[in-house]
Computed example of a mutant assay.
Amino acid sequence: MGIFAHRQVMTHTGSGRLVKSTIRSLRILEYVEEQGSVRLTDVASEFDIGHSTAHNHLVTLEHEGVLVRRDGRYSLGMKFLKHGVSATQSIPYIEVIRRNVLELAERLELEIEFLVEEHGRVVSVIDTGYKFTKYPTADSNLNVGTFYPMGCTASGKAILAAMSESDVEEVLDEWGLPESTQYSITSREVLSEELEQVRERGYSSAKQEIVEGFDNIGVVITGPDGTIIGAITVGWPSYHFETSVPHQIVDQLLHTKEAIEAEMQTTEA
């Protein structure tokens, strides 16, 4: 039995009972995503279920277009691409944000990312990667769709700093403060002090807290009614700046935040 089968499943929520078979199908999709492609026997072994049960899940998911089968192996279908695009387009002012993110990336020649909070974590929605950067060790991989804990990311800290105290506690109660690297914040008291600093200076920072060798700073983006929409971050390899972050980068990020929020005032969501 694999790790996906061992993931804790709550069968009740405050609003009703969860359907275990649906949860298992979703776990199977996660397993397929992680593996790239799987055989029926892989699923049966991973979830400790009979071949007929594994087959029923797989053919149902294939019938619904979320899995495709080639040469006896199942992989994710392109239907997820449509779902992802639809989810992205549902974010208020996403085109305003996208345009400004790309413009900022071109000006700074650094990685710019836009992330939103969902169920107590942040997820990458727009990531310029290192398309606009000049440093030779640049990695071209994009992080779109990747979820991160909030307490050790610049985006998460920027959003947490804009949340109410009760909402922050709810996030921490659900997800805690995982130690992603040796530099991650694992104390609520330390995080609380840092969030206060974020509120005072207007931007957040994370130095090697989510990935060793990578630093970034971030700002929260709020709508005209004060609703938190997401956060924009600027990131770079830790060696890129020997001491503190150049004030020009901070200024450019803050300017982009102001430009986006000003344009929102005259644009429909």
Rank of each mutant, 00 (worst) to 15 (best):
K207A: 10
V19H: 13
L61A: 01
E261L: 04
R39A: 04
L142K: 15
G129E: 08
I159G: 08
E268N: 12
E268F: 12
V234N: 06
T146W: 01
I28S: 01
D173G: 07
A231T: 07
L110M: 14
Y93N: 07
L110A: 05
F132H: 14
E109H: 15
A262I: 01
H55M: 06
T243G: 01
M264D: 04
V85T: 14
S75T: 02
R99V: 12
S155C: 12
V116W: 09
G202M: 02
Q35K: 00
L172G: 05
I126F: 04
Q252Y: 11
R73G: 00
G218W: 01
S15M: 11
V101G: 00
I217W: 04
H51A: 11
G230C: 01
V168D: 02
T60K: 14
M163E: 14
S204L: 04
M163Q: 14
L18H: 04
S155M: 04
H57T: 06
I229R: 07
G226Y: 05
G176K: 11
M1H: 13
A262M: 01
R27P: 00
Q265C: 09
E179G: 09
I232Y: 05
G120E: 02
Y93K: 03
A206E: 08
I112H: 06
S86P: 01
E169S: 03
Y239L: 12
V68R: 11
E170P: 04
V220P: 03
M10N: 07
V234D: 04
G16V: 12
V171E: 01
E62I: 08
S244T: 15
A269I: 06
V125I: 15
G145N: 02
M150W: 00
I23G: 04
E268R: 14
V220A: 13
R27S: 00
V245Q: 02
T13D: 06
P224D: 09
R7I: 08
S52I: 15
R188E: 15
Q89T: 06
S45L: 15
Y93P: 04
T60S: 07
G230L: 03
S15Y: 12
V43L: 08
R107W: 06
T53Y: 00
S205N: 03
L253M: 08
E193A: 15
T256M: 08
D251H: 10
I97R: 06
L102E: 10
P92Q: 12
T88R: 15
S205H: 01
K131I: 10
I3T: 05
L40V: 08
V101H: 03
E111M: 08
S86H: 10
S25L: 01
E196K: 13
L58N: 02
V123H: 07
G129Q: 10
V250W: 06
L26Q: 11
L26G: 01
Q265S: 12
T222Y: 06
Q8R: 12
L172K: 03
A161Y: 02
D251T: 10
G156V: 02
D173A: 13
D48S: 14
E118V: 11
Q197R: 14
L253W: 03
E30Q: 11
R39P: 00
V96D: 05
E109Y: 10
K20N: 02
A87H: 11
F47N: 12
G50L: 06
K131H: 12
